[in-house]
Design a protein around this nucleic acid. Structure first.
Lengths: 193, 193
DNA sequence: CGAAAATTTGACATGACTCAACTGGAGTGG
DNA sequence: CCACTCCAGTTGAGTCATGTCAAATTTTCG
């Protein structure tokens, strides 16, 4: 299973795994490829899988009452995607997850996760740290939303996701920033001047 | 140490602890009382402690360049307070934490935490779940900020923190919502009508 | 090439901000 | 116990950033 090696390597950067643990892990996860526009999860479904992105990109978004799309986060290489709220309490997902490019990932089904935690308790620590990091990132996002103007948030986005802007349409950046595409267009125009 | 019992009880609701584990835990944590307006953490300091609130309330906030206060969260009974970003990477805190009332809490110093994880590995699981929950709450906050008007966010705040509004000044609610006190005053006026 | 989608631009509306004045209650000191 | 001060909260008037609606233009892609 050489295809799953990137994940075991990634985990080994954080915690030591014996060969046995490593191969048990490998036996529980699987490699998968998706195509641009494929949905990994739809609002209302129950999220059953953790996704670790090897290459490509996804967006996590939801549709409000008016049917407008709001992008909560982009996930790119070496990052995790899932609707954690749905996953941990097995309730209907609040979010959709969709591929923005052809994307290859490693999937860890929820029930495999339980086995992994039992057999390799160290993984509790690993995932605790992953979630901690994600939590801090989300807090920073709130902080930015609070005190930065649309212009400044756009700059912050470019810093947080270097190069991503080149890979996705502008209206998605606007959606991530919580502004209208027209407004982003005007901000960009103004910045050039 | 009967004063620390509420926390051990709280943890036991989630994971089983032997008597030995329970008393080891108790030996590592301490009970403490703070007074209204006491600072638990100041922007720029390194956060060294997890706080579990038994009674009272705190606010976690930061001051922007203009010196305006933005409240990220309120923490009340049975909830955790800390600047996790500062705590996990031992970098200067982005946030201040201050008591809004006389508040009693249980403190777990960061280095005690490491001992606890070693001696009681189950705690990794417990804290993973705590952080997961906090993460989901933060995501929901972003979602609200995105799609709700100031009016609707005010209603959401009242739902998320029942009764808290009665315990704190109105300008803090405004700060939490990310609007001016004047705007909140107008929203309240309009709602009565 | 042609249709559909994305982006830009213009004109106008609006929600929230800013600045400023005023009200009312809480706490303090004479 | 009253006068004074301070601070939270309210209200008003004008401003500004962003939203809305609509049309023109450019880009993408089958």
């Amino acid at each position: 299973m050489t295809e799953t090696k990137p994940l075991t390597d990634y985990i080994k950067q954080h915690i030591a795994l014996t060969d046995e643990e490593s191969s048990f892990l490998t036996s529980k996860i699987h490699f998968k490829k998706y195509r641009k526009r494929d949905m990994l999860l739809s609002q209302g479904d129950i999220c059953k899988t953790y996704y670790f992105i090897l290459s490509g990109a996804t967006k996590t978004f939801y549709l409000d009452k008016a049917g407008t799309e709001h992008i909560l986060t982009f996930c790119i290489e070496n990052w995790w995607a899932a609707d954690l709220g749905s996953l941990i309490s097995q309730t209907p997902a609040a979010y959709n997850i969709q591929c923005l490019e052809n994307t290859s990932m490693i999937e860890i089904p929820l029930d495999a996760m339980e086995n992994l935690y039992l057999k390799i308790p160290k993984l509790e620590r690993f995932f605790r740290k992953i979630v901690e990091r994600a939590y801090v990132a989300t807090q920073n996002r709130i902080t930015d939303a609070f005190s930065l103007s649309a212009k400044e948030q756009y700059t912050a986005f470019q810093k947080r996701y270097p190069q991503l802007e080149q890979r996705i349409p502008q209206y998605m950046v606007a959606s991530y920033l919580g502004i209208q595409p027209q407004s982003l267009s005007r901000i960009r125009k103004e910045r050039k001047a």
